[in-house]
Amino acid sequence: MKDKPSKYVPELLRGSTDTLLLFLIQERHAYGYQLIKEIGRRSHGYFQFKEGTVYPALHRLENEGLLEGEWQELPNGQVRRYYRITEKGKYALRGKMATWRDFTSAVNLVFRPVEA
């Protein structure tokens, strides 16, 4: 029997929102709507971030000095607020990713069947 696609538990994601946002912004400057779409695309629709969660998270990260926001004008005349990661943000991201790797490794070790 084929497994049903699992649904993630929001509580699991809550602690990882910052890491995902910082990671994507480290790759390239991005604005809020673009980040929501990018996370959905990369996770094949698994993560569906609520806009009302992402924008406050971006502002919190900016307030903590991990991101910097800047308004930029596009060739079509529209303006958007792009975020870029700061040095402090890069340092925090390295720590968060290390923690995440250790956590998933430990979970995988526990999930491994016990050899008889």
């Binding site: 809020g32 709507y33 806009e51 924008y55 502002h59 926001g69 308004w71 303006v79 607020r81």
Partner: peptide, 9 residues
């Protein structure tokens, strides 16, 4: 800033 950003969204 916030209102303008939400508006762009």
């Amino acid at each position: 800033q916030i209102v303008r950003e939400v508006y762009t969204y």
